[in-house]
Nucleic acid binder design. Structure first.
Length: 943
RNA sequence: GGGCGCUUAACUCAGCGGUAGAGUGCCAUCCUCACACGGUGGAAGUCGUAGGUUCGAAUCCUACAGCGCCCACCA
């Protein structure tokens, strides 16, 4: 027989093979269904990783969760599409290639735009696939045939289409505004790309002489060098200190330029001296104030944050050098009134951590709060509305509030970037000043006939990623894919990109998919019948937690605490790593990744592996002795799986093929299996991955392996004809439950389950993969409370005996007789399971007695029975007394509490009947237990 | 300056109105013919502090302390 499995599970030996198999066999392809297909659909967009990226733990968590959900839905019969791709990641990729050029002592400017872009493409072709290969290693069940790159031709066309349409609708404009300028990246960046860091700086007080009087007005600033571009000093209109200066002018020191004192609420009388310098070209607030007062805007810096000729004799200095010089000069002139330490929130570039310069420049913006020309609601308004109405649900729910708050205060989106790598803005400039925005390059200027040059800027990367939910499905064409797969079912991502990406997808989706309606059959099948709005990009948003290191620190390259998932995988296996992440992924809490957990789940994988080994060994034995053949199981289970999978509708596969409950453990494991399957279903439905994982874990290990397997062993080696029949049933049940449990576990541990599942079918399974087999749904009517109660009594008895043995330090191999006192019902139960008791508790001979054994030596009591082991060795009386007293104390405490509650009228009146009943029952039980414990204590004393 | 989250066994975390659970670690014991990545048994928590609501609170409310995150144009 080919069932020779190595003793210890070695994930490395099988995982790569299956990863390849899944891709090669195209198992997870979601082909466009033919018209009229009523199959329910589950669509999930992969947040496209940067082409420059390497997989990190955050990805792995994210991918694990998505893969679990996708595999789960696929197994349940959904047409599951998980759509992969990579993002061109403007700045990141450009920086990567620039660095490469620098090593060759080259420079992008010297190379020229065209050559540089070609060079980036080359880089992308070479290295851009790395992260996709890593995804294969994780077992991500994406549809590889649909893999896109955000700069593919069709996606680029869609980007131009969107830009032009927005422009035509009046939602894109070009304007001169203060933007965040990164002097290192030499581009404008959006507000979201700026990280604020509290930095130790200084607050300087500078005296500006008031013209025509010997007076000074003192202003406070953290950035003295910007004074060179000051065009006013503002005071609060109601500030009495400066009333006499209204309408006066000051002479700007160093520049010797006369500037007005203006009245504006920009100045806060509470802060500093109450007077503030106004630099419209280098501060967002000042810019607004400047507009209010028609002030000139003097830009004193160039692209590299060096001062320009507007700064007079300071021209050419870096902004840092300029600060020193300005301060020195002011000091020399006696105009520096004071300096004090001050923490300033410094804005830094998210990419390169360079201090951002607020700078006046001309950029393209998307007007997000403006209605379209033809009166349609603004992008933001729609994006707020669909979330408020629950057309898009956000989970955990506190993120919904955060989202709505942010959307309510959203500002126009600066979408132009001064980069070379990205989607170039489809706008053309003419020397005559005309700007044309068009889908294709116009031949000449329609106004003057002159030559045109394309706008040099490219679009913010998030502009194109915001469109992915529909552009990846063929938009702007009206494709069948769009009809079937849009709206997506879920968007699962990290909090960090809720605004970067999620908000933009909602805005664009609602705007551009207006008029998108699924045909009725598809809509019906989608399972989202209660949701009316089909323009939204997805129905649900699930925000997953952050993965931190074991010390709860955010992982970052600079801290050097980044855990490479590939290393973890190599050490413990992909399944164990996935399981760790799933088991720790409680919604809303960050994960401190801890390898000891992974170690534990590697052991779990090994446990299952060995359970399989056990089965195969016994099956082989049974086949040799002709008792049973695996073929029986294969035919039966295979037929059921094929039929469950064949249909186009969801057909819950609830049963275990041919299960024949003969014994208590059979009834019990069947009941548990269904209960567990239902729990898993409920947990996954509400994104409680940790609960789902833990449920499967404890079922497999704590119930199937620890109890069912051990009990069923008794029946596998038959004696006599009746034994043969029992063995046949036992094999059928054992294999049946095991196979079904593998399917239950499969989304969490796809590799291990695939390997064993194929082995169960001797490499010729009924379907190409366990991932295509039906998921156990769990049948509530199959839950058998009586079996579970009976099993609990049996387990209780066995554990009591084991406990006694341990305490008496009985030789592990010695088998002892036991005596049991119990009522008739329990007695029958125990008699029927005598063999199990003998085997699992190391017992030989069970005798039942009429009298209570509470005060017998070596006895244990429960509410349902007393049990004593027959063993001549004297017990350690002191230890026994201590144990009993401790237990008694606990019981009495609990009883006192219960009685207090039962004596409380308020409690009886207000508590739910179920709770009262529960406590009554418990109190009665406690009384019995206490009585038994007291008896036992007295017995100890008398002896 | 706003907003949010966390504080439960030695460690990492679940639980979120009916007197506490898991994994790892620890102790004891056993290489019993699936598994020492194992079996069996065990020890271990006044659920951050102080109040309050409730018949009842780890669970709800308030304050405080510590830790962390996000957002923010007060020089």
């Amino acid at each position: 027989m080919p069932h020779e499995l190595p003793k210890a599970y070695d994930p490395g030996a099988i995982e790569a093979r299956w990863a390849e198999y899944w891709v090669a066999e195209k198992l997870f392809a979601a082909p466009t269904p033919a018209a009229g297909s009523p199959r329910p659909v589950y669509t999930l967009q992969l947040p496209p990783p940067n082409v420059t990226g390497r997989l990190h733990m955050g990805h792995m968590l994210n991918h694990t969760q998505m893969d679990i959900l996708v595999r789960w839905h696929r197994m349940r019969g959904f047409l599951a599409l998980w759509l992969p791709g990579t993002d061109h990641a403007g700045i990141a990729t450009q920086m990567m290639v620039e660095r490469q050029l620098a090593e060759e002592k080259q420079d992008r400017r010297a190379l020229g735009r065209e050559k540089f872009v070609e060079r980036v493409w080359e880089w992308k072709r070479h290295y851009g696939g790395a992260i996709l290969e890593q995804m294969k290693r994780l077992g991500d069940s994406v549809d590889w045939a649909r893999t896109y790159f955000t700069m593919d031709d069709n996606l680029s066309r869609a980007v131009r289409e969107v830009f032009v349409r927005l422009y035509e609708e009046g939602l894109i404009y070009r304007g001169k505004y203060i933007v965040n300028w990164c002097p290192r990246c030499m581009t404008a960046i959006s507000d979201l790309e700026v990280v604020h860091e509290e930095t130790q700086g200084k607050l300087y007080q500078i005296k500006y002489p008031v013209s025509g009087s010997g007076e000074f007005i003192t202003v406070a600033t953290t950035r003295p060098e910007t004074m060179l571009g000051d065009t006013a000093v503002a005071v609060h209109p109601a500030d009495p200190r400066y009333r006499h200066l209204h309408g006066k002018k000051v002479l700007l020191p160093l520049m010797e330029r006369e500037i007005p004192i203006i009245l504006d609420e920009l100045a806060n009388p509470e802060f500093g001296t109450g007077a503030v310098k106004v630099t419209p070209a280098h501060d967002a607030n000042d810019f607004q104030a400047g507009l209010r007062h028609n002030l000139p805007q003097i830009d004193i810096m160039d692209d590299t944050a060096h001062l320009n000729q507007n700064a007079g004799r300071y021209a050419g200095l870096s902004r840092h050098a300029a600060r020193e010089r300005v301060l020195a000069d002011l000091e020399a002139q006696g105009l520096l009134a004071g300096t004090k330490d001050y923490t300033v929130p410094l804005g830094k570039c998210d990419r390169c951590k360079t201090v951002v310069e607020p700078r006046l420049s001309t950029q393209w913006f998307v007007a997000v709060t403006k209605k379209t020309k033809d009166g349609r609601p603004s992008l933001a308004a729609r994006a707020i509305e669909v979330v408020e109405r629950g057309e898009v649900t956000i989970f955990p729910e506190n993120y919904k509030t955060i989202y709505l708050n942010w959307m309510a205060n959203i500002r126009d989106w600066c979408v132009s970037r001064q980069l070379w790598w990205g989607h170039r803005i489809p706008a053309w400039h003419c020397a005559c000043g005309k700007i044309i925005v068009a889908r294709e390059e116009p031949p000449k200027c329609p106004q003057c006939g002159g030559a045109l040059t394309q706008d040099p800027d490219v679009l913010d990367t998030w502009f194109s990623s915001g469109l992915l939910p529909f552009t990846t499905l063929g938009w702007p064409e009206k494709t069948r894919d769009l009809e079937v797969f849009y709206p997506g079912s879920l968007l699962l991502t990290a909090y960090e990109i809720l605004f970067f990406w999620v908000a933009r997808m909602i805005m664009f989706g609602c705007h551009f998919m207006d008029g998108h309606r699924q045909d009725a059959a598809i809509k019906q099948a989608s399972g989202w019948g209660e949701r009316k709005d089909d323009t939204v990009p997805f129905r649900q948003v699930y925000i997953h937690a952050l993965v931190r290191d074991a010390e709860r620190q955010k992982m970052s390259k600079t801290k050097g605490n980044v855990l490479d998932p590939i290393h973890v995988i190599e050490k413990y296996g992909t399944d164990a790593t996935r399981f760790t992440l799933a088991a720790m992924a409680a919604p809303g809490t960050d994960i401190a990744f801890n390898e000891s957990r992974t170690e534990g789940y590697r052991a779990f994988a090994n446990k299952i592996w060995n359970a399989a080994r056990f089965l195969f060994m016994n099956v082989d034995r049974a086949e040799q002795s002709g008792v049973w053949s695996l073929k029986e199981f294969q035919d039966r289970a295979g037929a059921e799986l094929r039929s469950a999978q064949a249909g186009s509708e969801i057909r819950p596969h609830t049963g275990i093929a041919g299960f024949e409950a003969r014994t208590l453990e059979d009834r019990w494991i069947l009941s548990r299996f269904h209960a567990v399957a239902r729990e898993v279903h409920e947990a996954l439905e509400s994104f409680r991955f940790h609960e789902a994982a833990n449920t499967v874990y404890s079922f497999f290990w704590g119930e199937f392996c620890d109890w069912y397997l051990e009990m069923v062993k008794l029946r596998l080696a038959p004696e006599g004809g009746a034994g043969r029949e029992a063995a046949r049933a036992a094999f059928g049940n054992l294999l049946g439950v095991f196979e079904a449990a593998l399917r239950l576990l499969s989304p969490f541990m796809p590799f291990l389950t695939e390997e064993i599942w194929h082995a169960l079918y001797d490499g010729k399974p009924p379907l190409k993969s366990i991932a295509l087999a039906a998921y156990p749904e769990g049948d509530a009517t199959a839950i058998d409370p009586a079996a579970e109660t009976e099993m609990a009594v049996l387990q209780d008895l066995i554990v009591s005996v084991r406990n006694l043995r341990a305490e008496l330090k009985v030789e592990p191999k010695a088998r002892l007789p036991i005596r049991v006192h119990a009522d008739a019902g329990v007695r029958t139960l125990l008699e029927q399971n005598r063999e199990a008791i003998e085997k699992l508790a190391g017992v030989e001979g069970v005798s039942f007695v009429e009298e209570s054994l509470a005060k017998a030596a070596h006895a244990r009591s429960s509410a349902r029975f007393d049990v004593a082991v027959v063993y001549e060795k004297k017990i350690d009386k002191a230890a026994e007394r201590e144990r009993l007293e401790k237990e008694l104390g606990k019981l009495e405490g609990e009883l006192a509490n219960a009685q207090r509650q039962l004596g409380n009228q308020q409690f009886l009146a207000k508590a739910p009947a179920k709770v009262v009943e529960g406590i009554r029952k418990r109190a009665a039980e406690l009384e019995v237990l206490i009585e038994k414990a007291r008896t036992a204590l007295r017995g100890l004393g008398a002896d």
